[in-house]
């Protein structure tokens, strides 16, 4: 009896709980196609355009605010419906949102991020769409973002003591 119940708990199972593994080929393919669709929308909505972002921060036009607002609204309705009807992911697992915690980085990091967004006219998604669209100067934005990420990686122990993940 004991031997059987021991066999039912292989160590690999514990590992998959703490370290979620990769995806199926179909999963990666659908992520890829979703990314392509998003890249097209980024460019066609012109949120990849520096001028649009600048005009947003100058409060000169509502274009960006409306896109973000409608985006949040549609996503919120969809997620509420998903939770209400307990829709499952195609991989069979229930759909769950992993909350992002509050800590001082949300405030200070948020402000720093906003400053970078205003200067470069791009947030991370549009950087990739700009590069793909042939705006090779956006590679400098991306390189800067990598440097910033590395700087945070080294400074994280000093900036955030322990509490937060992500």
């Amino acid at each position: 009896m004991n031997a059987v119940s021991f066999k039912e708990k292989p160590t690999t199972e514990i590992r998959t709980v703490t370290q979620p593994a990769g995806m199926s080929m179909r999963g990666y393919l659908s992520v890829f196609v979703t990314g392509i669709s998003l890249g097209i929308v980024f460019v066609k909505s012109e949120i990849t355009s520096w001028q649009r972002v600048h005009d947003m921060f100058l409060l000169r036009e509502l274009h960006m605010y409306l896109i973000i607002g409608v985006g949040i609204f549609v996503a919120m309705i969809s997620m509420l419906a998903i939770k209400k009807f307990k829709v499952k992911s195609l991989n069979g697992k229930p759909i769950k949102y992993k909350p992002k915690p509050i800590h001082k980085g949300v405030i200070f990091g948020g402000m720093i991020f906003g400053a970078g967004w205003a200067i470069t006219g791009a947030c991370p998604g549009p950087i990739y769409a700009q590069i793909g669209g042939g705006e090779y100067y956006a590679l400098f934005t991306w390189a800067g973002a990598m440097l910033g990420m590395f700087a945070f990686a080294f400074l994280k122990p000093k900036l955030l003591m322990s509490s937060s993940r992500c």
Binding site: V106, G110, I112, F113, I119, I127, T141, A145, L147, G148
Partner: peptide
């Protein structure tokens, strides 16, 4: 600006 994006986004989570 890119540096601020990368640093700020990861700091903010």
């Amino acid at each position: 600006g890119g540096f601020l994006i990368g640093f700020g986004a990861r700091y903010a989570g």
